[in-house]
Amino acid sequence: MSYLPDTSKPMEPLKTWSHLAGDRRRPTEYEVVSTNLLWSTKDPKAPWAMGPGTPLTKWFVKYRNESPLVHDDWDAFRDPDKLVYRTYTMMQDGQENYIDGLLDEHSKNDHDATMPEAWPRELARFYTPSRYLIHAVQMASAYLVQLARSSTIENCCMFQAADQYRWVCRIAYRTSELAKAHPDLGFGEKERQIWEDDPAWDGFRELVERTLVTYDWGEHFAALQLVAKPCVDEAAIRQLGRAAKNQGDTLLGMLSDAQLIDSERSRRWTKALVEFVDQNDRNRALLKEWIEKWTPLGDRAIDAYCAALPGIEDAADQAKAAVRRFRADLGFRQPQLG
C-alpha cells in the first residue's frame, strides 16, 4: 500500500555524508564538519520562511543574493588552511601562551619604565588608539559572517573576526600597563579623542567607516579584504612594529609580528576566494572596479598615518607597496605608486 514504506530495495549504506559521497578520497574532518551547512542559500528570492516584506529578508535578498559578485556554487569554496573550531582554538591557545610569555618577560624587565623618553608619547598616539580601528575591522568581519554565502566562507570570516578581538584585548591590556608606567600620558583615557580628532587617524577612520556601511556582500568583501584590512595590517601593524623596533620597543615589535601571523592566514583565504570567484570576466571586472574605487581611500589612510609615524621615512611607501604586492599576487595589477 502506498502509505507504507517501500522496503523492497534497502538503500545502500554510506561511507560518508551523501553530499560528499561523490568525492574519490575519504573526506577530511574539515570537510565533514564545514561544508554545505546553510539552508538560506537555495531560493534567491526567499532565504527564510519569513515573508518578503520582513526587513531582514529584504536585507539578505538585496545585499547577499542580489550582490553582483556571483558564483554558481559557493559551497565549493574551501579554506586553504582547513581550519575547524577545534584546531583554531588549539592553535590560538598556543599563540596566546607565547604572547603571555612575552608580556610577562617584558613586565619583569621593567620594559615600560625603561623605554626612550619620547616613545611612550608616540605609543599613546599611534598604538593604543588602534583598538578602535581593530575593533572596526572586527565588526566588518562579523558582517561578512552574517551574510556569508557558504559555511566554508563563513568559517574563515568567523576566525578573522575572532582574531581581531584577540588583538583588541591585547591592545587594551597594553594600554592598562602603559597607564601604570606613564600615568600622565592619558593612556586609557584619550584614545577615543585621538581616534576621532587626530589627522594621523582620519584616513583610517574614513576607510573603515565607509567599509562598514558598504552593505553589498561582494563590495564589502572587496573593500575589507582587498583594501582596508591589508592597509591596516601594513601600516598600523607592520610599520608601527618597525618603528617600535627602531625605538628599542622589542615588545611591540614582537606583538606586531605575532599579529601579522593572523593577517597572513586571512590573506590566504582571501586569495583563495578571489581565485574561486575568478570564473568569469564579470567578477574580475567587478573586483577590479571595487579595488580602484577603494584604493585611493586606502592610500590616503596609509599616507596620513605613516607620515606622522616617527623614525621611519619610507613607511608609507613600504606599506602601499606591500598592499599592492598582495593584490598583484591575486592577479590585480595597480597603477604604480606616486
Partner: peptide, 9 residues
C-alpha cells in the same frame, strides 16, 4: 552563527 554575527556587527 549568523544572528550572533549580527549582534557582533
Amino acid at each position: 552563527c549568523q544572528p550572533d554575527a549580527r549582534t557582533a556587527r
